[in-house]
């Protein structure tokens, strides 16, 4: 097995355009979810035991700013994963059109994420009144 011959900084500067952007955002979203689910489960468990720290962490997780940032990772991972799965189910027919699929994915993502952000803000305002 050979060692990695590209530094992390060089890898992050790689200009792979649309497909690479979806690839790296998919990973960032997945990593965000892995960290979130682990800490959220532990926080809820500790909250059930009456520990203050769990309450504090879950208060951060329920806050609108956190949800807006986190929702980006989750929804992108979800919608991009759906594109990957659909393309993998019909590779010979669909993979030649993967750039068009990425464009459709971005349109769907912007619509769903935009709606999620708007309802997060309006719900938070509604709960305050």
């Amino acid at each position: 097995m050979s060692d990695r011959n590209v530094s992390l900084s060089a890898a992050l500067k790689y200009k792979g355009q649309g497909p690479y952007l979806t690839y790296i955002l998919h990973r960032i979203g997945g990593a965000m979810m892995a960290i979130f689910v682990t800490t959220h489960v532990l926080a809820t468990f500790t909250e059930m035991q009456g520990w203050q720290i769990g309450d504090l962490i879950n208060d951060i997780y329920i806050s609108p700013p956190f949800q807006i940032v986190f929702m980006f990772g989750v929804l992108f991972h979800l919608i991009n994963g759906m594109r990957i799965t659909i393309l993998d189910l019909f590779p010979q027919q669909l993979i030649p059109y993967h750039r068009q699929a990425i464009l459709i994915e971005w349109i769907i993502f912007i619509l769903v994420y935009g709606f999620a952000v708007v309802t997060t803000i309006t719900t938070a305002i509604g709960r305050m009144s």
């Binding site: 949800q67 929702m71 709606f115 999620a116 309802t119 997060t120 309006t122 719900t123 509604g126």
Partner: peptide, 8 residues
Amino acid sequence: DMSFVEVL
């Protein structure tokens, strides 16, 4: 009873 993001 729930907003879009709450259903999500």
